[in-house]
Write a protein that binds this DNA or RNA. Sequence first.
DNA 1: AACAAGCGTTAAAGAACGTTAAGTCACTAG
DNA 2: CTAGTGACTTAACGTTCTTTAACGCTTGTT
Lengths: 216, 216
Amino acid sequence: MAQYLGAKGFAVELRPDGKQGWDTYLKGGFDLLILDVMMPMKDGFTLAREIRQRDERTPIIFLTAKSMKQDTIQGFQSGADDYLTKPFSMEELLLRVSAVLRRAKGVTATKEEAREHLLGRFRFDVRKQVLIIDEQERKLTTKESDLLRLLCEHRNGLLTRNEALQQVWGDDNYFNGRSMDVYIAKLRKYLKDDPAVEVLNVHGKGFRLVARSEDE
Amino acid sequence: MAQYLGAKGFAVELRPDGKQGWDTYLKGGFDLLILDVMMPMKDGFTLAREIRQRDERTPIIFLTAKSMKQDTIQGFQSGADDYLTKPFSMEELLLRVSAVLRRAKGVTATKEEAREHLLGRFRFDVRKQVLIIDEQERKLTTKESDLLRLLCEHRNGLLTRNEALQQVWGDDNYFNGRSMDVYIAKLRKYLKDDPAVEVLNVHGKGFRLVARSEDE
DNA sequence: AACAAGCGTTAAAGAACGTTAAGTCACTAG
DNA sequence: CTAGTGACTTAACGTTCTTTAACGCTTGTT
C-alpha cells in the first residue's frame, strides 16, 4: 500500500504498530491517516480516539478485516471518515483516499479560515494566536504568531531570513534582523516543552522548523 | 556467483570469510550484501547481526545449505531481506537480487529524502548533518556537511574543484577555493578517527574520497 | 636546480547568530 | 494626568560559523 500510494505521488510514512504510529503522528504535518484496526501495541480504534482528542480535522480511514456492522459503527464513532474492508483493490484504496482528501480540503477551505498547525505535542491556532500544549494555553503576540505561522508554512523546508523579514516586518534592514533573532529565541523558549520540535538555523540563509517523531 | 553477477553489470567484491567480509563492509558504499551462513572465522548470522547494529538499511541475502525452518527463522531475525537455499540456479539468484534491490530503492526513495552514507566505521546522516562513529556524534556545519555529501556522492571517483565550489559556494573564485581547502582540512581531522577513510587530493583537478578495507 | 602554481594547516579576523536585559513607545486604568 | 502594563526594539556580550592571512610543503614545468 505504501509503495503504491508513493508511486501515485503521495508522501507516505509507514509504521508497524499503533504506538509508533502515534509517535509519528505527533510530529505533525499529515493530511490523512490510514489505520489498521488490528495492530500490535495499540489497536486502530483506540489510536483514532486519542488522535481525535487533540485534532478534529485530520481525516482518518480505517482498514478492517471484520465486516461486522457492530465494528463499523464503533469505527465511525471514534471519528473515522471512511473505511475499507479487506480484501480491497489498490484502485479502491486510491478512490477513497482521493475522495476523503478532496472533502477535507473543501472543508478547511470553505468552513472557516481557521488555520491550525499541529506541531509535535503542540497545537497552534493561527487565528486565535494561541499555542496549546497539554491543555495549557499560551497567548502569542502578533509578531510571535506571524513568525511561527511562516515557520509552520515552511515546515521542514527553509524559511529565508529575507522572506520572514519582508512578511512580518515589511523591511529587511539590520535592526529588524536582530529583532527577529530575539523572536526566534522567544519561540524556542515556548517550544522547548516538546524536545521533538526544534527551530534550526541555517547559517547565512534562514531558519528551519522541524518536528521529528520520538524514536528518531 | 561473483563472476556471473559481474557479467550482469553489478560491481561485486568477493571475500573468503566472515571476518574479511566485515572489514570490507566497513569501507562502505555497498547496495546489497550476500552472506553465506557457513563461513570460516565468522558465520553469516553473526555477521548480519553485527551489521544491523550500525546499519538498518543495506539489504542482506543469505545463502544457506540447511533448509530447516529453524535456521531460516533465525536468519530473518538477524535482519535478512531474503534467502537462497543451495543448490540454486544463477537465474534464481539474479531474480532475488533484482527484487531486493528494487524494493530497497523504493523504500529509500519514498520514505523521505533521508540520505545516509556509510563510510568505514562512520555513519554520515545528511539530513541531520551529523557524523557518527562508535556511538559518538559530531554535529557538522552546513558547509562541512554539504562538502562531505558531495565527496560521498563521488566516492572513489573525482570531485572536481569547480563542481564543489559551484555546489557549495555558488562561485569558484580564488578565495572560495582557499576556503574550501580549509574545510577539506577540517573534514580530514574529523575523519582521521578511522584511518581507512581518506580524502585524497588530485593535483590541479580536485578531491577523491576513498574507504579501503582494513587489510588493504 | 629553479621557479610558479597548487595544496595543507594553523591562526586570526570577520560575520552571523543566541540570549538576556534594558530602553522606547503606545495604550490604559485609576 | 500619571503610573503601569504589554509589545516591540535596541544594546550588549558571548558563541559559532566562515573567510582571510600567513607560512611551509608538494607537484609539475622549464
